[in-house]
């Protein structure tokens, strides 16, 4: 697994470093803006908005994890397919569950690190304005967005690894429907009871890229 992590790190390190910097800057922008408005209008106004109007103040980050997940999969898997490097990987003396699984695990780990950094930064910055209960409400509301980023990464890998164009389109349609589930409600904490199911759902979706690889191995073109 170390070897695959080493390879993927060499290939994708600049993407993940830039993504981490970009997402942290976006979190910083959102929270600094909130701090500025608090200084202008007073924190009480925002507390009231949070408690009575379901405001969560970080709407700008709504689709950011999703887009990062999609971009991560494209950057990681499109060159593998276009330059036929996937054949080199599949020819290595190990099971493809192990090789492709390690590549996927690398991407998921890197995204998890970035997302945890984001949530930690948001938590720390928001804690200086709001009570812990409001901060936790905001972060719990954002959690499905970040989970959608992980799911989007896996689904996009499934599409990229698929060898047949028609099936890619079909996989794309299925993926769009699956990802829609993460954005069905804007109500804060609407997903709280559903979060464990969403997490299991994401784990189950991790099986899909292996179907594409199996099809690639048998030459379904």
């Amino acid at each position: 697994m170390n070897a695959f992590f080493y390879k993927e790190w060499l290939k994708n390190r600049w993407f993940y470093l830039l993504s981490a910097a970009f997402s942290l800057l976006l979190c910083l922008y959102v929270t600094l803006n909130l701090h500025r408005l608090c200084n202008l209008r007073g924190a009480a106004h925002f507390w009231e908005a949070a408690l009575t109007k379901d405001a969560i103040f970080i709407q700008l980050l709504h689709y950011m994890p999703l887009l990062l997940g999609i971009a991560a999969a494209l950057v990681q898997f499109i060159p593998e397919m276009l330059q036929k490097r996937i054949k080199l990987t599949l020819h290595l003396p190990c099971n493809y569950f192990y090789s492709i699984g390690s590549m996927l695990l690398f991407g998921l780990c890197m995204l998890c690190c970035i997302f945890l950094l984001n949530l930690s930064a948001l938590g720390i910055a928001l804690r200086s304005i709001f009570a812990p209960e409001i901060v936790s409400r905001i972060l719990l509301t954002a959690l499905p967005w970040y989970l959608s980023g992980l799911t989007a990464y896996v689904l996009c890998a499934w599409i990229c690894l698929e060898p047949n164009w028609k099936r890619r389109v079909l996989n794309g349609i299925v993926s769009a429907c699956v990802l829609r589930i993460f954005f069905m409600s804007d109500t804060p904490e609407a997903y709280n009871r559903f979060l464990p199911i969403l997490a299991v759902y994401t784990l189950l979706i991790c099986a899909l890229p292996f179907i594409s690889v199996e099809r690639f191995k048998t030459g379904k073109d």
Binding site: Q83, K84, R85, L92, P93, N95
Partner: peptide, 25 residues
């Protein structure tokens, strides 16, 4: 070859058309 044990591929060297390699290394 479709059912080949992965370990057996240690004994097969494959050169893909165009000398495909991990060119980012």
């Amino acid at each position: 070859v479709q059912q080949m044990e992965p370990a057996l591929r240690r004994n097969i060297g494959l050169l893909i058309e165009g000398h495909v390699q991990y060119t980012f290394m």
